[in-house]
Write a protein that binds this DNA or RNA. Structure first.
Length: 656
RNA sequence: GCCCGAGUAGCUCAGUGGUAGAGCAGCUCAUUCGUAAUGAGCAGGUCAGGGGUUCGAAUCCCCUCUCGGGCUCCA
């Protein structure tokens, strides 16, 4: 007799041994969509036996756990297909990942996958899927495992490393008692912890996406394997939706929009990762920066300005030459001194602080600068504006008394979120990154700084997770992530409590008891880098940026040449109301000019013809709307756009 | 940096060993039009660069550069 509770239902009783599947069938003779089970909270095969007294929960293919099982099983099918097509291929690991899966291979004779090969692999996978091969689990000793995989160096390496890599190996199917493997129909066996779907027929809504290189165990000193990425879903509809999302993401690619809208480019003559901004792009930057500067000044920051290069001494004191020399541009020699392009602004801001004796009355002292820094990024990591070699940080350094730390961080995080929200971004998550293994400083300091960051996070009300050991070597930090319009996460702002620089630069202030004390230092980038934030905005808005950022907000289109006088009058009204508007001369047909203006994503296209000249009206085409709104009185239109032509007023938002 | 892929007009692309092509964009002229492409003409190329094979190379081979997808890295 076995008594099994089903989550959300009553307890069932069975004679003898039962599997999760038996339990499921006792509830529903023809269950649909269930592909896995959780027994006492642990994800397991439906075929797994369930002990007396267990609590069982069934996992649907559309749930996150269910999708992960489908993806992992699809990865196995892919490995089976590759091994059949390439006898002698070595296979490494094949986990499920966000939206899909991958599997790493080493093909015999140094063969490489091509895009056509992916189609062949897909075809083979579909054969395996139609064959409805069952996934069967076996538990083996280490010795049997090593025997089965004697020709598979990656598998045997995983098994052998069980002692020193116990945790990692656990995820690959190695446990203290031995190893588990999964077989499909005697044709394929893989070292695997599971669970899997019952048989391959439960799979099928997948697509192989691309082939890429990947290092064995993620170590660039080890061999490079070939990785195939794929995506897999429970239903055809979900798969198609995902493929559409990928297409949508491609359309939103900021590099594509940047070219289409003539915003920026990367001249080869200048070098990789070094963008130039064209007039329209530069105007957007200008608006971003001006809005930000004004907000900072209102929020009690003082502006700073610092040069682009400095003597090596500065970076010896700051420690950058010790920790990050590889990421710095190489030095220049001049008159016996060695200069480096700056990789960070903080040492220079510290020198401003240190230029005089500071009183506790001056604290918190908040310095702010759009500081351009240069970092040597390896060629393969460059990615449009999102990863460049010359970037402008909206960088601030706040120096405060220890007692002010928690309040200052709370205030700062609120400011950061208000600024991000004023760009129309709404969905935030944060990570609190704690002390890494490779770090400097006293435990007590780390403890204090980390707890101050936590206080700020709690006060902000945004969700956060702890990223254990992910802090910088000198500081715990908060990283703010945002979700864009199509659900992608981007890391933007970072707040760090520096435990090193104040000591390295021997900073101090005179406290109210006339004693000299060490100030605390907070580093903060809000956009992160202006370039990257620019890219995020372009992708979030799919190129249709908020009106206040744009150089051209309104285009006025006279129907015929003889309407141009009135069109100019309209532009005059708009400009005196503070908008940026221009006339598109009637040299081309109206339809053609409308099309052009719409492709440029102009927020408002005003068409003026005979009726409008007589009635002092405009025909309004709003961005995103298909149908024009004709005969709008000019005064009413000007009134309606009064808000959106100007940058949002951040101070109002921070106070509310 | 490493693996794979791709570079043809400003952009999107066709051209697989035999005279370098189209559409859009640009320029000129004509057209004056009420909501997503008016017409005609002109101009535009070291086929990424270099080397090789060949009677002949955009096309085949080698090297380099740049870009893309990943990996590693990201103060």
């Amino acid at each position: 007799m076995a008594r099994i509770s089903v989550l959300g239902e009553q307890t069932h009783e069975f004679d003898g041994v039962v599997s999760a599947l038996d339990v499921l069938r006792s509830i529903d003779p023809r269950p649909k969509g269930v592909i896995s089970a959780k027994v006492n909270g642990a994800l397991t095969d439906l075929s797994a036996l369930v002990e007396d007294g267990s609590v069982v929960e069934f996992v649907n293919g559309s749930s996150p756990d269910g999708l992960s099982v489908i993806r992992h099983s699809t990865a196995h099918v892919m490995a089976q297909a590759v091994l059949e097509l390439y006898p002698g291929a070595k296979y490494a690991i094949g986990p499920s990942i966000a939206d899909g899966f991958y599997y790493d291979f080493e093909l015999p004779d140094n063969q490489r996958f091509s895009d056509e090969d992916l189609l062949r692999v897909e075809t083979k996978m579909r054969e395996i899927i139609s064959a409805k091969q069952p996934f069967t689990r076996e538990e083996l000793s280490y010795e049997s495992g090593l025997e089965i995989f004697r020709d598979q160096p990656f598998k045997t390496e995983i098994i052998r490393q069980v002692q020193e890599l116990a945790d990692e190996a656990l995820a690959e199917g190695v446990s203290d008692d031995g190893v588990s493997v999964y077989r499909n129909a005697d044709k394929f066996v893989d070292l695997c912890k599971g669970p899997h779907v019952g048989h391959t027929g439960q799979l099928g809504h997948f697509k192989l996406l691309r082939v890429a290189g990947a290092y064995w165990r993620g170590d660039e000193n080890k061999e490079q394997l070939q990785r195939i990425y794929g995506t897999a879903w429970e239903s055809k509809a979900q798969l198609e939706e995902h493929l559409n999302r990928l297409k949508e993401a491609e359309k939103r690619d900021h590099r594509r929009i940047g070219a289409e809208q003539d915003l920026f480019h990367f001249p080869v003559e200048i070098g990789g990762g070094l963008p130039v901004f064209h007039p329209k792009g530069a105007f957007i930057r200008y608006q971003m920066e001006e809005m930000s500067r004004k907000a900072h000044i209102k929020a009690g920051y003082q502006l700073a300005w610092t040069p682009h290069i400095a003597k090596s001494t500065l970076y010896e004191i700051s420690g950058h030459l010790g920790w990050y020399k590889d990421g710095m541009y190489p030095p220049m020699e001049m008159e016996g001194a060695t200069y480096y392009p700056k990789p960070m602004n903080c040492p220079m801001h510290i020198l401003i602080y240190r230029s005089q004796l500071r009183s506790y009355r001056e604290l918190p002292l908040r310095l702010f600068e759009f500081g351009t820094v240069y970092r040597f990024e390896r060629s393969g990591v460059l990615h449009g504006l999102a990863r460049v070699r010359g970037l402008t940080q909206d960088d601030s350094h706040i120096f405060c008394a220890p007692s002010q730390l928690a309040d200052e961080l709370t205030r700062l995080l609120k400011f950061v979120l208000a600024m991000l929200r004023s760009f129309g971004l709404k969905d935030f998550e944060a990570e609190l990154a704690t002390r890494p293994d490779k770090s400097v400083g006293e435990d007590a300091e780390w403890e204090e700084a980390t707890s101050a960051l936590k206080t700020a996070l709690e006060a902000s009300g945004i969700p956060y997770v702890i990223a254990e050991g992910e802090g910088a070597f000198y500081a715990p930090k908060i990283d703010v992530h945002l979700k864009d319009a199509i659900g992608r996460r981007w890391q933007v702002s970072t707040l760090q409590v520096d435990l090193q620089m104040p000591q390295r630069f021997d900073m101090n202030f005179v406290d109210n008891d006339n004693q000299r004390r060490r100030p605390y230092m907070i580093h903060r980038a809000l956009f992160g880098s202006v370039e990257r934030f620019f890219a995020i905005l372009l992708e979030h808005y799919a190129g249709a940026l908020p009106m206040w950022l744009l150089m051209s907000q309104i285009q006025v289109l006279p129907v015929r040449k003889d309407h141009e006088t009135y069109a100019k009058e309209v532009v005059g009204r708009l400009v005196s109301a503070g908008a940026r508007a221009e006339v598109a001369d009637a040299t081309e047909p109206l339809g053609s000019r409308i099309r052009k203006a719409k492709l440029e994503k102009t927020p408002y296209i005003l068409v003026v013809g005979d009726d409008d000249v007589n009635a002092k009206t405009v025909g309004v085409n709003s961005r995103g709307s298909e149908t024009p709104n004709r005969g709008v009185p000019l005064d009413a239109f000007v009134e309606s756009i009064k808000e959106e032509i100007f940058p949002p007023d951040l101070l109002l938002e921070t106070e509310s």
